[in-house]
Nucleic acid binder design. Structure first.
Lengths: 237, 237
DNA sequence: CGGTACATTGAGAGATATCAACAGGCGTGG
DNA sequence: CCACGCCTGTTGATATCTCTCAATGTACCG
């Protein structure tokens, strides 16, 4: 939760060559648009556990994640935490409802973001309805994911929660890196617990149980799916 | 869950005189825009428990709620239900992520909606960036509410859930109808339970407990807040 | 090699779910 | 107009899942 002191370094690379060129909001932009965007964006690095922005802070920027993973979370006054989402490269972070952030974002491992001034980006989008539609599309997709997660939090058992999480996380990684037998879990057990509305012990026990049942194999920092079909069935049920 | 057979009746009234003129998406539109919109919209009535649209159905329309209350919910294959939101007059329902609805909507009591063809509305928005921004704003607000609800579902006790629900619902009603000591609850206990990730029995017991503690008074179809401060404290905690 | 952070495991407690019975309101129909 | 049945909501007893508290294990790092 330390704050990064690293100031924005000049972008350095052209947006056109960006690794996430075809993923995030920028997918809606042509070369001319991108050239304009280059002048507005700065790449910024954060070390593990550094805060990109915090709940209640003023919203000054919007972000595209370039490398690494972020956790987004909300805290209750007494310290209880609910992780509302994990952010992967290509994801866009920049639809603040108000002048203050309603949740916090910090780095899980080293992270690079593409940062833009919120006002400059707002001006940039003004006469670009295709970009507005793209942002809208992303917001609606996030809303849909949020509702799926409500179902998980409100109506699923611990085993179903964990299975659903593993399948969903695998699917996101597959989209980024292509198929793989193992599912990397850069977040720790507490993060998973706070995402699924469980305690760390219950998550741990559930992992062990799934391992005993030959559904998954547990390794430090990852799991592999021994029986993807069964995991998917638990996630669907 | 019956399907309404009532076909779309001609709008009849001018959008400019609409009751929710200043609330929903239409707040972003001037008189000229509204006149154009009148030709696209139809008022449709639904009786209690009729389905406006169902999960997996094709998305053909977008809606503005004019009168009444809707529940939005998702079902798991085994029948478990999670209500993802209640819709009040002025709320906009029309940001489908895909060609099929990802949740169902049905009427709690009699309902009137303003229905527009999805494709016609999409064409209508095409050259109206102010409307796009308005839609975006609404989507982001909903997303924020969804995240708040995730915290409730994942990290709050039954008593906190019920108190938070009552305060939140009261605030929405106040915005529509002005201050009032009583909070009308058109939805039944099962709806509340499915919204809060509880069982009907737990909701009932929690109401009784809050009544014993002189926080609320329970009446058929409504409650009144005897100790709003205490209820708000439970909702914030 | 020891320290620290993270993860696992166990025992017991507690909150909510489940199962079951009962109460009250409301409409229907005799 | 009253009796009946139905639906919704409440209450009670018990079960169960997940949490809490505590101890132990394990990997990483100085």
């Amino acid at each position: 939760m330390r704050i990064s002191l690293v100031a924005g370094a000049p972008n350095g690379k052209a947006c056109n060559d960006c690794a996430i060129r075809d993923f995030g909001v920028c997918a809606a932009l042509d070369k001319t648009d991108l050239r304009e965007l280059e002048h507005l964006s700065r790449h910024v690095r954060f070390a593990s556990c550094e805060t990109v922005f915090a709940q209640e802070e003023m919203t000054t920027s919007v972000y595209n994640l370039l490398e690494g993973v972020l956790r987004l979370y909300k805290l209750l006054p007494d310290g209880r935490r609910q992780i509302v989402g994990f952010v992967l490269p290509g994801d866009f972070l920049g639809m603040p409802i108000s002048v203050r952030h309603s949740f916090s974002a910090d780095a899980i491992g080293a992270v690079t973001v593409c940062r833009l001034s919120r006002t400059a980006f707002a001006r940039y989008t003004e006469n670009k309805p295709h970009l507005l539609r793209r942002i809208n599309e992303l917001a609606v997709r996030e809303l849909s994911q949020a509702r799926d997660h409500m179902v998980l939090l409100g109506r699923r058992s611990a085993a179903e929660k964990v299975a659903t999480f593993l399948i969903g996380w695998r699917d996101r990684l597959v989209q980024l890196n292509g198929p793989s037998t193992t599912v990397a879990l850069p977040m720790n057990r507490q993060d998973i617990a706070d995402f699924l509305g469980l305690t760390i012990e219950t998550v741990s026990r559930t992992f062990t149980k799934l391992e005993r049942d030959h559904v998954i194999g547990v390794l430090p920092g990852s799991v592999y799916l021994l029986d993807p079909a069964r995991a998917e069935a638990m996630a669907a049920a």
